[in-house]
Design a protein around this nucleic acid. Structure first.
Lengths: 125, 125
DNA sequence: TCGTTATATCGTCCATCGACGATTTTCGAT
DNA sequence: ATCGAAAATCGTCGATGGACGATATAACGA
């Protein structure tokens, strides 16, 4: 019980972290950037601009957001900058998704609010 | 190999879909809701309101967003509504994360730019 | 029927996001 | 020392998001 509470607490505490990670992925341009970086290790910024099809300043802003999230790290290797990924940042989000996936398919039996399955609002009764 | 490329292309084409899924998870309240639904199969809306600590109307709005994303499905079982999860929606996002994770840490990415693009570090510049 | 309870919707306010062009910065190259 | 290319930053604008209270809706029980 205490463990469950603790686990749940950590989950809740992770909510902000998970949300911020998801936020970093919550835009098609950023998803494209990530996919591009996965497919081409050590690619160059200019290529990313071509890939996503937005203005250079806009792409730079998306890269800034991704770097702020920690998912993308910019390795400055003049004359150009090579970006790379830090997958470890994704762990909490991946864990949540894993839990959901393990949770089962589209819920078989929703619940009955009767005494057993669904806990009625308030305390257990 | 052809399959890999096809999968990769579908990933990129799915950028919008992945982004919209991520968007559904891009708010702490919604993450809490998901975590809560995972931990309590067939829970009740009122409990969710207590859990996230926001106004009922705000929680309802977050639930609407989650339902619109397809991740949460509301099974109407009066007198109350029991929500449940559809994990299959997460597949594209999970796949992307898996690809990033398989990509390796940030250590191997930096490279030397050259006229042919980025060459792995260690290559003669 | 009427009242209670749970959920959804509406209207509004303020904050943040996303896009762009213009500008600045920062290097290597000439 | 200056030029040029690549990236970051700035300023602005319209769009969207998130919060809330108030209100509407729906089903059950008395």
């Amino acid at each position: 019980m205490l463990e469950r509470r603790a686990a749940k607490r950590s989950q809740v505490d992770d909510a902000d972290a998970i949300a911020s990670i998801a936020k970093a992925l919550a835009h098609p341009a950023r998803v494209k950037i990530i996919a591009f970086l996965v497919s081409r290790p050590g690619c160059i910024g200019g290529d990313i601009v071509d890939e996503v099809g937005l203005a250079q300043s806009t792409v730079s802003e998306h890269l800034r957001i991704l770097k702020a999230s920690g998912l993308v790290v910019g390795a400055i290797e003049r004359p150009r900058i090579c970006y790379s990924l830090d997958p470890s940042i994704l762990a909490p989000l991946q864990a949540l998704i894993g839990r959901v996936a393990a949770h089962g398919g589209p819920r078989d039996a929703p619940c009955w609010p009767s005494s057993d399955g669904c806990l009625p609002k308030g305390t257990d009764q």
